[in-house]
Design a binder for these strands. Structure first.
Lengths: 322, 322
DNA sequence: CCCCCTTATAACCAGATTGACTATAATTGG
DNA sequence: CCAATTATAGTCAATCTGGTTATAAGGGGG
């Protein structure tokens, strides 16, 4: 064995395949009172994460362990987001390749243990341009649009300028295009490319443009969050995952408000009810609540049986194209 | 440093986080003459794969390198399938955790370089029960159904028996249920659980049932293939990925046959044409071909522009519910 | 050379789904 | 008891979907 050679000229020697580290990163989401919240650590600028270790039974259980240790929040529903290992993400000294495996988890804050200090924040603090529930937010038209137009003007060549204009228009719904709430990642990447988010300046980019007012995160965590939001906004339309975020018993309006918080746009009330009922996703508990003001609302619970019945088929939530 | 301690009692000492190996595994798909084919190595019983190494620029480029080296097939479209690292997949001697990162790649055989010996096989060799283009295949009703009924009978307790019956019925469309072509993975896992595929017997399972006639693969490669097929069958319905499998110029019927090969079921011809045209996914080349027999068919090409226009929105292929 | 067979292409129709709107019922709070 | 608020039911048109039928344009065999 050439262990000695390896030990003496550590970093610069040829690398073995096992000089690899795997990081687990979690986007943990909960919704309360119409606010879609994400779980963070540090100064609310990092997602819970930690290395995959030898005694972790699986990737998922390793993730659960890290999140619970760092935030006291136990996780229920988990799904994988993406795995990546680009050169940009190399560890210090270039000695280690880091593979990042990111996950989306859905939970409810009530689960949280009091001992730890879970740090929840509305994800619209990080993406103020994504909340269209009260119409297009001012920041889009007043800040982003002029900045992006300016950015497009900076391209070299007329064709490149038109291309930038078109991309911005598609992503943000300019020029009478429809807003598509699923394009979260495309929008973030466009702003990154245009130097309009804080983290774009870190890599010693060109002219340091003044970033759009929004909360940032360390490394590429905000990008991972964007991926999680996009995945969730897409998934609620064809899988009954919203219920992971609901209390065991809820009213239909509460369910609708949760969907709207996630999608960042309002849906039509009668149509929403019809869609939920005709898919038999929920059943009445027989009770009502008056806590909502007005006429008492029937309480419902999720029919867990549908997960077996339709397995993975149909079961789509409203397309929220209203 | 306790390098010495580590070197002497190698395997059994406490492990560092870096005792990790990452494997890249590819499900490479092409379609020719109505056969959906998968690229294999060895005795057509393994997917192309190899470890992620230090000089790979990214996971994807590492995958491309391995596939090209092992099969001579360059890859075009690639998307990630899943990353896993369960204890089952531990390396020999329990000294190494292996993380497997699987990908789905779409390509055309024409690309293949003559030097290597690419080994293509219809994926229905591995999943004979998945091809419903000529109606429900005999193996489903004559072999799988009785075997699964027998398996359900073997459960302990009436409730467990009913549960098994129901799961089998949902997955395979028994008892007047509709066949859902997307449940590829559920079906495979059900057969695995029932001991009806060859690899289920490897883990020294209970009674060695006689497996259903079908081609098997090493390790869990067949399971990964099932994941890839399921993803592809789902994705062709809402993203224009079929075109990655088509020649630059094609007739609408050729496009339809490709979709049918993937979905394992027939679609309605006029509806298919209407769907393709109204989405403006293709444009006429102005030429026609008589190679198809009968009346000459117009030739079309994919409008790559749609990838920009709709970005990630709409653009869905037929739901193939016919 | 004509007829038949095959495939391409166009037109049509009924049922289901969707989006949007309107009306009515049941509470609370002043 | 009235007004405000919320829940719930019903309606209507536009669209989409699955399916069928009819017509056009080639090649090949008798």
């Amino acid at each position: 064995m050439n262990d000695k050679a390896k030990d003496t000229r550590k970093g610069r020697a040829r690398r073995k395949a096992s000089d690899i580290k795997a990081d687990l990163i979690a986007v943990v989401v909960a919704v309360t009172d119409g606010y879609p919240c994400v779980l963070t650590i540090g100064q609310a600028n990092a997602l819970p994460s930690g290395p995959f270790e030898f005694d972790h039974r699986s990737l998922q259980s390793g993730l659960r362990a890290w999140v619970e240790q760092q935030t006291g929040q136990p996780l229920g529903y988990i799904e994988q987001l993406y795995t990546f290992a680009d050169r940009d993400r190399i560890g210090a000294e270039d000695q280690l390749r880091v593979i990042s495996i990111s996950y989306l988890a859905l939970t409810r804050k009530e689960y949280a243990i009091a001992s730890a200090k879970p740090c929840w924040g509305s994800w619209y603090d990080y993406f103020p341009w994504e909340d269209h529930r009260s119409g297009t937010p001012p920041v889009v038209l007043d800040v982003l649009r002029p900045c992006l137009i300016e950015w497009a003007r900076g391209a070299s060549g007329g064709e490149a300028r038109r291309e930038r204009r078109r991309r911005a228009a598609v992503a943000f719904g300019f020029d009478d295009r429809a807003w598509n709430e699923e394009l979260v990642l495309q929008r973030y990447e466009l702003l990154y490319e245009a130097g309009l988010v804080e983290e774009a300046a870190r890599g010693a980019h060109e002219g340091a443009l003044t970033p759009v007012p929004s909360r940032s995160m360390i490394a590429d965590h905000r990008r991972i969050l964007a991926t999680g939001i996009a995945r969730l906004r897409s998934k609620i339309k064809y899988r009954p995952v919203v219920f992971e975020l609901m209390a065991p018993v809820f009213t239909l309006l509460q369910l609708q408000r949760t969907v709207e918080a996630l999608a960042g746009r309002l849906v039509n009330k009668p149509n929403f009810r019809r869609l939920i009922e005709q898919q038999e996703l929920v059943e009445e508990t027989g009770e009502t609540t008056t806590e909502t003001g007005g006429r008492p609302a029937k309480l419902y619970r999720f029919r867990h049986a549908v997960l077996d019945e339709t397995v993975i088929a149909g079961t789509k939530l409203p397309q929220t194209r209203g």
